[in-house]
Amino acid sequence: MTAPASLLAPRPGTRARHARNRIATLSIWVALILVVVPLVAVIGAVIVKGASSISGSFLTQDINKITNGQKLAAAFAKVAGKQSTQDGIKPAIIGTLLITGLATLLAVPLGVLGGVYLNEYGGRSRFARLLRFLTEVMTGVPSIVMGLFVFSIVVVKTGFSLGWNVSGLAGSLALACLMLPVVIRATEEMLKLVPQELREASYALGARKSKTIVSVVLPAAAGGIVSGALLAVARASGETAPLVFVIGITRTTNTNLFSGGNVALSTEIFRNALSYGSYATARNRAWGEALVLIVIALSFTLLARLVTALFVRRRAA
């Protein structure tokens, strides 16, 4: 047997192994591009097409009857021409903000309390583990099923339903059901990070458990909880399926969530895209609404990031 020319010389097969490694790395880069391209395409399309629809009156006017199909004949005249100056989406903007707002008011306190139960009281008990499992399961419930659930228990007139009719409130309830498990999970994760020593320091001063949780544990975890809740709000503000048949419809702004139909940006986009997609006005409206909706959802996300950043910096100080 002859000695190899150099100890560091590649052994047989090495070349193929490195080729495989390069192919794998390349595939991963391709995967990244394949996902980033549609994201850029979607956001780019919404910005470009949406911006041309948006004007002062678009944001501040009521929804025009004509484009909602009542008098399509009259609309034909406008298809080729410019958009009606009376056409706007204000009721949908207000509706989205109010419905999401009420859902937040319902889901965040309950979710935080639920998270407190799981982490501070339940711990590793059998019942707490069951609830933790059910919370995971609940995050997987499809949003359309939440819509059907709220319809079955709040809106419909038969069975053991409250029979309240369609309203913004019904939409808020559906969104709150979607947000609740997310907030519970976020709260529990954040509470887990609070060092046990802080709780003990409080107990050692004669504080009771509830006082310790409210005055020491929750403030220490506040940044993370707020950020998690904001992400849930961002997600909820864009939801369509749970709202589409429980909030009804309106063309004028309805600030009363407890009575009368309401409208949200997401349901408006859906309606415009589904039924009137072939009419330029409806299509333009949908893009304009999509831009406003994305801006709203993104603001909540950015706010969440900001809170996290501030929180991390305060921790580090």
Binding site: V35, V36, L39, A41, V42, I43, A45, V46, A234, R235, S237, G238, E239, T240, A241, S266, I269, F270, A273, G277, R283, A286, W287, A290, L293, I294, A297, L298, T301
Partner: peptide, 21 residues
């Protein structure tokens, strides 16, 4: 961050893009 951003784009917006673009 970019991938998390994808999660924020509402479903209906993806649908809109899918059907019109």
């Amino acid at each position: 961050y970019i991938i998390d951003l994808l999660a924020v784009v509402p479903s209906v917006v993806f649908g809109l893009w899918g059907v019109f673009v």
